[in-house]
Write a protein that binds this DNA or RNA. Structure first.
Ligand SMILES: [Mn+2]
Ligand SMILES: [Mn+2]
Ligand SMILES: [Mn+2]
Ligand SMILES: [Mn+2]
Lengths: 217, 217
DNA sequence: CATAAAATTTAGACAAATCTAAAAATTTGT
DNA sequence: ACAAATTTTTAGATTTGTCTAAATTTTATG
């Protein structure tokens, strides 16, 4: 497994659920910040090596073998993000880039010991579930805030977009994982939402509500 | 800086002190487990980029710029080794290979935070000094056990060879960094040495004594 | 359904890092 | 000192991952 192959597997894994069929060449090229022709070459290679299914012009999907590797990389990525936040005092908007590098370190023992050192965390700093060592992922029962109804009592449990800009916006408005609030008003005109959080009212746009995962409590 | 360039700079840095002149192509090839022709190519590149001095057939030395990068890689390598031993319960013979990967992770903040998290260690698990963030290295006053005289009271402060086999031999014989012992006899015939350590006598060969660093106390 | 547009693949090239084999320079040994 | 041995460099090829430009296939549209 080369670094590039690992990154492609991860990208395919993330894109697969967004499209009933296989992942398209252009979608992968966009995700990987590369050209469609490069994607075709790599997809062909992954397919020859048994990590992906691919028929010309028909998009790509992962084999079980490919999926297993992708999940393993994601597990490492998220464990490292927990390490950076919980042990090295990184904030949640600073960890992704470093985790992108750390996820490729190869050592079974390193990851199992890190997992133990972090006391077997189940979620990363963005609320995403950490696959266990067998690849099982505990999916949480969460919805987008934009789906919540007026009067719902919510707990923030994750973010859809984990860009630094969005996370900093949340910080500025004192919204973090675990924050509790009530949907006090939904404005039909622009789909903005007023939430009551820690005794203050906060109006947030539909851009925000459609990137925040919550659990109704 | 590519991964390969970093590894060459580190190798040159380690070999430079062993040879008054520049580091030879063959020595570098041996250290890097590669062919002399590959070394020539890389040395030419490092030289063009200003990391090394190189005149055809005359060996290679580092520029200050190259030395700075090499020291930075070594700093990261040794900090990660401390992390693996002190926090993740690796033993000192298991850390090198993983640190070889971790040393190439690029993040200023990661290293400064890791340094703080480890409480600013000065030496790695093998007794080697950890350069500070400015590149300064605190050289210790240590000698090889083979240089010690009969009657000398020693404290083990480092290893010359940090191969897994050697470190496991030391473990087996309960010799660790910080162990104190006295040189009770030096056998002229084979240069083996008898040491008195924790109330037992231990005979060790000249292979061992010439790979153990001690401080005379 | 027949083109036009868009997506995808192929062909050919390139940079990085390596290799083998051959040539050139240096060092060694008598 | 000079031929032989050794070391180092060069020349040319290979692999990986990328690119541009052209060809092909699929999808959209009148
Ligand atoms: Mn991330
Ligand atoms: Mn994350
Ligand atoms: Mn090491
Ligand atoms: Mn070490």
């Amino acid at each position: 497994m080369t670094l590039s192959e690992e990154n492609y597997l991860k990208a395919i894994y993330h894109l697969e659920p967004l499209s009933k069929k296989g992942v398209t060449t252009n979608a992968l090229a966009e995700e990987m910040q590369t050209k469609a022709s490069s994607v075709t070459d790599m997809v062909k290679k992954l397919s020859e090596k048994g990590y992906a299914h691919h028929k010309k012009y028909q998009g790509v999907t992962l084999t079980n073998k490919g999926k297993g590797i992708a999940i393993d990389i994601i597990r490492k990525h998220r464990l490292w993000e927990v390490f950076l936040v919980n042990k090295l005092n990184f904030s949640w908007d600073e960890v992704h880039e470093v985790a992108e590098q750390l996820e490729h370190i190869k050592s079974k023992k390193l990851i199992s010991q890190l997992d133990a050192f972090l006391e077997f965390p189940t979620h990363d700093p963005h609320g995403d579930p950490i696959p266990d060592k067998t690849g099982k992922i505990n999916t949480v029962d969460k919805i987008l805030l934009s789906e919540a109804k007026t009067g719902d009592h919510c707990i923030c449990v994750g973010v859809q977009d984990s860009s630094s800009n969005f996370l900093k916006y949340l910080d500025k408005n004192k919204i973090a994982l675990g924050s509790a609030f009530e949907v006090s008003h939904k404005e039909p005109f622009d789909n903005s939402v007023t939430i009551r959080i820690e005794n203050r009212d906060l109006i947030i746009s539909n851009i925000i509500t459609s990137n925040l995962f919550v659990k109704i409590s």
